[in-house]
Structures are given as structure tokens and as C-alpha cells.
Design a protein around this nucleic acid. Structure first.
Lengths: 107, 107
DNA sequence: TCAATATATATCGATCATCTACTTATGGAA
DNA sequence: TTCCATAAGTAGATGATCGATATATATTGA
């Protein structure tokens, strides 16, 4: 799973959100480092819905504009948890090996 | 940066390794979850060398077969450290939000 | 009243990393 | 002598993401 997809699921883990809300939320989660593109987001929505990881929650009309809310499914939450654990382990492995270099392994 | 690329850099963070060594190392790091394909590896080697994140270290002839060793450059180590930190934060954010769901937020 | 900006959804074409599959080669084991 | 593990490499296909663009509305300001 790629970073944008992971962050979309993470955004929805906080509760149902609409597309534009996910974009701004992802930007916040990543400290402004990841700015989701509309193309990425809506393609991902379709794909993740097809995989059963997210589902349409409801539609609202606010100021004459449609807001389509998506929510994380049980499968989506499980998948996100698995990916988070996988990333945690990989990050830990990399950091441990980099520490060895830093502490004079190469010198 | 995608997972295979991250794991290739992580493998090289333990010291210079040749292609096949990286494949087996990555499999070990990821607990057997990630099996690097030759196509992925050698394409990544070319790309990462072009980006200056890795460099050719030396060539050895073992049992009549060439072993081409690659090593992590300073830039590569810095990049890997940055990616690891980014992943750590994202994993943490996801886990924190999933905990809220788990503790009865949706119920 | 007209232009610009923020919100909001959506599509299209291009790019690029990865995957599948294949090729070549050696040494050792069955 | 056939098969497997090791070892490097290429070609073509797939698919996620990106950049650009289109649409529509409300608000702000010239």
C-alpha cells in the first residue's frame, strides 16, 4: 500500500469525511508534507470502495454543493492496522541499522 | 518512496551487499512478507544510483560468478533516516486513530 | 457587474515503480 | 544428467499516483 492510500484510510479512521476534508486532514497528519491531488483521491475512493476497505456513508448538501462522505469499514480498519504495524517494524529496522552506521561502524 | 525501495536502502544500511544478498536480507527484515523480484531490484539499483542514494562498492568473483556490491551513500543514509521518521509518524497517527475506534467511539 | 478565490467533486493522459516472466550462467546435489 | 540454489539481468504489462483541466457555487473585492 502506498503512502497516499495509507493516509486516506488514516484520515477516515477519525470518522466519516468527504473528499475535500480528507485532503486537508491528510495535509495536517503529514505536517504539510503530503498534499493529496484530486486525481489521486477520487481514484483511490473508487478503488478502496471496490476492495471493501471504505464505504459511502451519506451525502449532504451544504451551500448548494454536494458533500459525499466516506467511512472506514471493518476490513478497512483491520487493513490499516496491519499496514501501520508493518510500517512501524520497517521504520524500526531502518533506524536500528542507521544507528550502527552513525556510531562509527563505517569509520 | 515505496516499500521495496525503502527495504533495499535498509538492507544496504547494514553494509555493502550484492543483489541476491539484498533479496534475502529484505525477506528477513520483513519477516518473509516481502520477496523482492529481480526486476524490481535491478531497476531500483539503476534508479537509486542515478539519484546518488547508493553507489557501486566493488565486484567480486565467487565460484566464477560476478558479485556486484552496492553501498549506501551519505545522501542515501540521510534519505532513509527521513523516510523512516516519516513512516514512524504516519504509523503512529494511524494507530492513535484506530485506538479511538476500538475503544467504543463507533459503538 | 465582473473577476478572483476557496470549496468541492470529477475525469483524462502521462509518468513511473513494481510485477510477471524470461534469459543466461555456475556449482552442487539427487 | 537433471534439478535446484545462487547470481545478474532484460522486456513487457499493470496500476497507483500526478499534473492538468472541467464543473459548479458562495464570497470577497474592485
Amino acid at each position: 500500500m502506498q503512502e497516499p492510500t495509507f493516509l486516506i484510510l488514516t484520515a477516515l479512521a477519525a470518522g466519516p469525511q468527504h473528499g475535500y476534508g480528507v485532503i486537508t486532514d491528510v495535509e495536517r497528519i503529514s505536517d504539510g508534507q503530503v498534499r493529496l491531488r484530486a486525481g489521486t483521491l477520487y481514484a483511490a475512493f473508487d478503488r478502496l470502495q471496490g476492495e471493501g476497505l471504505i464505504a459511502e456513508d451519506r451525502e449532504e448538501i451544504v451551500d448548494g454543493r454536494v458533500r459525499r462522505y466516506y467511512r472506514l469499514t471493518g476490513d478497512g480498519a483491520a487493513r490499516l492496522a496491519a499496514e501501520a504495524e508493518r510500517m512501524r517494524r520497517h521504520a524500526k529496522a531502518a533506524t536500528a541499522r542507521l544507528r550502527v552506521i552513525g556510531s562509527g561502524g563505517t569509520a
